[in-house]
C-alpha cells in the first residue's frame, strides 16, 4: 500500500548565477511499513528532499502525496493538520520544547490536535523507549540519547502514516546512536510504522529495507535490501 508518493520534485534556490538546484526531478514511492534510508554527501539535497516529502518546504515543481492526499495543494492550515496527523518528524537536534516534561513533549502532537491521549499507548511508547523514570523530567535534565528517544516518542504519539527522521543519530556518539536506532526500529515494528531516514552512516543505512542514494539532487540508486 502506497503511503508516500513523490512526482517530479524540483527545488531551486536563488536565481541566475546564484541558482542552486537542490532537488532535481525526483520521483519515488514509499509503501506502508517500509524503512527507507536516504544517503548522500553533504549538499546532495537529501535534507531538502526530506523536508519537501514531510510537507514543511514546498517544492518549486512537482507534487507529494501522503496517504493519497496532495500535500502542497492544501492550504497552510490544512497542511498543518495533515502534518500533525499523518507525519512524524525526528530531527538531528531533537528540538524538544524545553518548557515541557518528557511526557508532555511526547503528547504534544495529540494536544495540538485537541485529542485526549490514549494513556495505554503513550505508556507503551514510554516503556518501549525506556523513559519510564524520566516521565516528569525536562529536556535539559536528559542526555542527548534520552532526548532523541523523547523525539521518537513524539513522532510515534499520533500514530502517523509516515515518520521522517533527519540524521537522528547525528548528534549522538556511536553507542548511543545505535541504541537509539535500535529502539526506533523496534518501535517501528511494534507500532507498524513507515520510516524515511536520512543518514551519513553506512551501517545505519544498512539497517534499512531500502536505500536511496542521492547525488546533486538526483536519485542515483534505489536499492531494496533483503534482510536475513
Amino acid at each position: 500500500m502506497e503511503i508516500l508518493k513523490a512526482e517530479h520534485l524540483l527545488k531551486v534556490y536563488g536565481e541566475n548565477e546564484t541558482k542552486v538546484v537542490a532537488v532535481n526531478d525526483i520521483s519515488l514511492t514509499v509503501h506502508k511499513g517500509e524503512f527507507v534510508a536516504i544517503v548522500g554527501a553533504s549538499g546532495s539535497g537529501k535534507s531538502t528532499l526530506l523536508h519537501i516529502l514531510g510537507g514543511v518546504d514546498a517544492p518549486t515543481k512537482g507534487k507529494v502525496l501522503i496517504d493519497g492526499e496532495d500535500v502542497y495543494s492544501l492550504k497552510d492550515e490544512k497542511r498543518s493538520i495533515l502534518r500533525r496527523r499523518k507525519v512524524g518528524f525526528i530531527f538531528q537536534e531533537y528540538n524538544l520544547l524545553p518548557i515541557l516534561t518528557v511526557e508532555e513533549n511526547i503528547k504534544m502532537p495529540l494536544s495540538l490536535d485537541g485529542k485526549k491521549p490514549e494513556e495505554a499507548y503513550i505508556n507503551e511508547i514510554i516503556q518501549t523507549l525506556g523513559l519510564e523514570d524520566r516521565r516528569t523530567h525536562l529536556p535539559n535534565q536528559l542526555s542527548g540519547g534520552q532526548q532523541q528517544r523523547v523525539a521518537i516518542g513524539r513522532a510515534l504519539a499520533n500514530r502517523p502514516s509516515i515518520i521522517f527522521a533527519d540524521e537522528p543519530t547525528g548528534n549522538l556518539d556511536k553507542k548511543n546512536g545505535y541504541e537509539v536506532l535500535g529502539l526506533l526500529k523496534k518501535s517501528l515494528q511494534k507500532f507498524s510504522q513507515t520510516l524515511v531516514l536520512i543518514t551519513h552512516d553506512v551501517e545505519i543505512a544498512n539497517m534499512a529495507d531500502r536505500i536511496i542514494r542521492i547525488e546533486d539532487g538526483k536519485i542515483i540508486q534505489d536499492e531494496v535490501r533483503a534482510h536475513d
Binding site: G54, V56, D76, E77, S80, I81, L82, R83, R84, R85, V87, G88, F89, F91, N95, L96, L97, P98, M108, P109, L112, D113, R154, A155, N158
Partner: peptide, 16 residues
C-alpha cells in the same frame, strides 16, 4: 523561534 519552528513541523498551525 526554534520551538515555534518545531511546533510548526510537527503540525501546529499558525493560528495555534
Amino acid at each position: 523561534t526554534r520551538d515555534y519552528g518545531m511546533l510548526r513541523c510537527i503540525g501546529a498551525s499558525k493560528r495555534q
